[in-house]
Write a protein that binds this DNA or RNA. Structure first.
Length: 194
DNA sequence: GCAAGGATATCG
DNA sequence: GATATCCTTGCA
């Protein structure tokens, strides 16, 4: 859930999405995780208490949202890779259009892939690095997590290797730590075959 | 298939 | 201080 902030909060209106794709990054041993170098200025929040946001910049132009998971002192986070738009679709489309200055192309609010991908998801929800450290469980926070009324059945969840970590060593490179909602059209890239 | 783009970690 | 690399995307 993203409530538009103040002056720079982006488009007006509350934006809501259902998380349909995530990846786990656990511990300093995980050779694909930002925590593999130990605690640094960038990843410090990963070592703190759970439930906080960790937002970082990749490829010089896209922010990615993570949720810190393990208890204070252990470095871990869940990368949110895709959400299914639920509410505030117009604001999402507007935010995405505004986020890519040089480019053009139609972004229809009814596009199911409006927030499919870790980078475009942050663009659609106006999530930037300034939100790092936000307590996502605080009902007053501008960005927050809420539990679904009905949990996803385990049979509807697929697992694959994580994306974009070819640089990592085995076994981490192949660990099936990417989880997707097999029934959702909003999953980024290709869905695992079932 | 590949360029755009800037911060980050590492090395000199 | 310099440089290789990066948890991506959208267009050629």
């Amino acid at each position: 859930v993203r409530d538009a902030g103040g002056a720079d909060g982006g488009p007006a209106g509350r934006r809501i999405g259902r998380i349909v794709e995530v990846e786990a990054y656990v511990g300093t041993d995980d050779r694909a995780s930002h925590a593999r170098f130990g605690r640094t200025a960038r990843n410090a929040v990963m070592f703190g208490p759970p439930g906080r946001a960790y937002v970082y910049l990749v490829y010089g132009m896209y922010d990615c949202l993570n949720v810190v998971t393990e208890p204070d002192g252990r470095a871990a986070a869940i990368l949110i890779r895709a959400v299914e738009p639920v509410a505030g679709l117009d604001a999402m489309a507007a935010a995405r259009t505004a986020h890519r200055p040089g480019r053009r192309g139609s972004l229809r609010p009814e596009d199911p892939r409006l927030a499919s991908g870790p980078g475009v998801l942050c663009a659609a929800f106006s999530i930037g690095r300034e939100l790092t450290g936000t307590d996502l469980l605080d009902p007053e926070a501008p960005l927050r997590l809420e539990l679904p009324e009905v949990p996803l059945p385990a049979s509807q969840i697929g697992a694959t290797a994580r994306v974009g970590i070819d640089y990592a060593l085995e076994p981490w490179r192949s660990l099936p730590w990417r989880f997707v909602d097999l029934a959702s059209d909003a999953v980024s890239g290709s869905r695992p075959r079932t």
